[in-house]
Amino acid sequence: MYRNGEILEKERFPSPNPTVHLFTVTYWSDGLKVKGLLAEPRTEGNYEGFLYLRGGIKNVGQVRPARIAQFASEGFIVMAPFYRGNQGGEGNEDFAGEDRMDAFSAYELLRSYHRVESGLVHVFGFSRGGVMALLTSIENKDVSSVVCWGGVSDMFLTYDERVDMRRMLKRVVGGTPTKFPEQYEWRTPLYFLEELRAPVLIIHGEKDDNVSIEHSYRLEKRLKELNHDVESWYFKGYDHYFPPAENRRVVRELARWMKSK
């Protein structure tokens, strides 16, 4: 039997960045063969690990090679799971349910990867990936840092705010928050932050209609109640997606923040 995070296949993928190699990988996750994208700087040597956890579900919010290469160009080995059931992977994605194991296993992949500096793996989540990043960092006490950018922190709040997502949530969770509160709580990291050890950076646009900034406010408030190491960067003029130039600037800044931890 394979161990979680073990790479089963690795194939070259066209890279949009001349300084970065990209690969599609198949790795073992809780008994399933799951797919993901791996990015490595072309320059020889070891680098800190960067686990990129995407938002959306299925065809919405797929991993973008240019985005993964962007983070790798900042000096990281980047692993971005597609999550189970996507792009040829086995199983079915269930929005921070059992598919959290795909993030946990990808974290193990990075920790054991031959070019990742020992013990230095950061976790990044965008949108729905915020929940995945927090759950991964709660599960793994040795995470170096965690960044939530426009991230979901409260699945009850997502159900309330995103009427357009209620059918999907009821399908993957099994019903409404009223009928199955324990399932929504299990998917809400706010209830488990006492177990988090890694420092947290929160990034959010105040005009975000996809994931309201209330998610970040609640996360920040709870972390501060716990006297946790947390920093918040809020942007008044931006929504879920930042303008390209500002996006690049923030990526450079968050990379520096990670490497300082």
Results as ranks from 00 to 15, higher is better:
103 A>H: 01
12 R>Y: 14
237 G>H: 05
2 Y>E: 10
225 E>F: 01
60 V>K: 14
124 F>M: 01
161 E>T: 11
246 E>L: 01
87 Q>L: 14
113 Y>F: 09
43 T>F: 07
224 K>N: 08
68 I>G: 03
239 D>S: 13
237 G>R: 11
95 F>M: 10
167 R>Q: 15
43 T>L: 14
22 L>C: 08
74 E>F: 03
184 Y>Q: 05
15 S>Y: 08
197 R>E: 12
126 F>R: 13
129 G>P: 05
60 V>Y: 13
195 E>R: 15
220 E>G: 00
214 E>C: 05
241 Y>S: 10
33 K>I: 01
239 D>K: 11
230 V>I: 06
44 E>A: 15
237 G>I: 03
59 N>Q: 15
88 G>I: 02
112 S>G: 05
25 V>S: 07
198 A>D: 07
58 K>V: 10
227 N>C: 10
133 A>P: 02
6 E>S: 10
31 G>L: 11
256 R>A: 12
170 K>R: 14
242 F>R: 06
127 S>H: 00
81 P>M: 06
223 L>H: 00
195 E>P: 08
116 V>K: 08
148 C>F: 11
220 E>Q: 09
212 S>P: 02
230 V>P: 04
86 N>E: 04
158 T>P: 03
53 L>Q: 07
191 Y>W: 09
248 R>H: 12
18 P>G: 03
163 V>H: 09
24 T>R: 14
170 K>P: 01
69 A>D: 13
134 L>E: 07
190 L>D: 03
225 E>Q: 14
239 D>W: 11
